[in-house]
Amino acid sequence: MNTVRTKFYRDRINGKWLGVCSGIADYTGLDVLWVRLGFVVATLCGLGFVPVIYIVLGIFANAKPYGLYTDAREEKFWQGVRQSPTRTSREVRAQFREIDRRLAEVEAYYVSSNPRLANEIEQLR
């Protein structure tokens, strides 16, 4: 597994202060608004350790590398890997089976005796 893309990073580019909430949102695939609201609600409910955890993560977590994902589709894929590696591997295997099935259909079409195709090729000669 590619550990660079499965680690937690602070996302200073999309973050407001230290980028911790944005990093958590990127890591889990949740909307950053809900993560921020969760931090605010937890803090207001008297959980005093939440701001401490935020600051500790802001200090010790690595910043998100530039160009970690090439596009939004790749970002969504790696979020799925982090959430459920087993499900993601099943999805990848299913995609490969579908590609293999389609390739077999193409191969069967061109390898089998196809009189219409043979006539078209003869007309082109």
Results as ranks from 00 to 15, higher is better:
residue 68 L to W: 02
residue 49 F to T: 11
residue 94 A to H: 05
residue 49 F to E: 12
residue 107 E to K: 08
residue 95 Q to E: 14
residue 93 R to H: 04
residue 114 N to Y: 01
residue 117 L to M: 13
residue 63 A to T: 12
residue 87 R to F: 05
residue 66 Y to C: 12
residue 53 I to Y: 02
residue 68 L to R: 03
residue 99 I to M: 03
residue 116 R to N: 11
residue 107 E to W: 03
residue 114 N to R: 07
residue 99 I to F: 01
residue 8 F to L: 14
residue 69 Y to P: 07
residue 51 P to I: 10
residue 119 N to R: 12
residue 120 E to C: 11
residue 34 W to V: 12
residue 117 L to W: 01
residue 77 F to N: 04
residue 72 A to E: 14
residue 91 E to H: 04
residue 30 L to E: 11
residue 44 L to S: 09
residue 11 D to A: 08
residue 52 V to M: 12
residue 33 L to F: 04
residue 70 T to M: 11
residue 124 L to T: 07
residue 98 E to T: 15
residue 59 I to L: 10
residue 108 A to P: 00
residue 76 K to Y: 01
residue 69 Y to C: 11
residue 107 E to Y: 06
residue 7 K to Q: 14
residue 11 D to I: 12
residue 83 Q to M: 05
residue 4 V to P: 00
residue 64 K to E: 04
residue 65 P to Q: 14
residue 5 R to W: 01
residue 39 F to G: 04
residue 27 Y to K: 06
residue 73 R to T: 10
residue 18 L to F: 06
residue 80 G to D: 09
residue 68 L to E: 04
residue 47 L to K: 09
residue 17 W to K: 15
residue 32 V to H: 02
residue 89 S to E: 09
residue 98 E to P: 01
residue 14 N to R: 15
residue 92 V to L: 13
residue 32 V to E: 13
residue 28 T to K: 01
residue 87 R to E: 15
residue 62 N to S: 13
residue 60 F to T: 15
residue 56 V to Q: 02
residue 55 I to A: 10
residue 78 W to F: 12
residue 109 Y to W: 11
residue 120 E to Q: 09
residue 41 V to R: 03
residue 8 F to T: 06
residue 117 L to E: 06
residue 1 M to Q: 10
residue 73 R to H: 03
residue 57 L to Y: 07
residue 71 D to E: 11
residue 83 Q to N: 13
residue 118 A to P: 00
residue 7 K to A: 15
residue 66 Y to N: 15
residue 117 L to F: 03
residue 78 W to V: 13
residue 51 P to K: 14
residue 109 Y to V: 08
residue 46 G to M: 09
residue 89 S to M: 09
residue 98 E to I: 07
residue 89 S to L: 09
residue 68 L to H: 02
residue 25 A to Y: 00
residue 69 Y to E: 14
residue 60 F to W: 08
residue 14 N to K: 14
residue 44 L to A: 14
residue 38 G to A: 15
residue 69 Y to R: 09
residue 27 Y to V: 05
residue 73 R to G: 10
residue 40 V to M: 11
residue 104 A to H: 02
residue 54 Y to K: 08
residue 85 P to K: 14
residue 97 R to C: 07
residue 40 V to G: 04
residue 53 I to W: 01
residue 45 C to M: 11
residue 121 I to Y: 03
residue 62 N to T: 13
residue 92 V to D: 07
residue 52 V to L: 15
residue 98 E to H: 08
residue 68 L to C: 05
residue 107 E to T: 14
residue 37 L to D: 13
residue 65 P to H: 10
residue 2 N to W: 00
residue 37 L to A: 14
residue 14 N to Y: 03
residue 101 R to H: 08
residue 83 Q to T: 11
residue 76 K to D: 14
residue 55 I to D: 05
residue 34 W to N: 10
residue 73 R to Q: 11
residue 108 A to W: 00
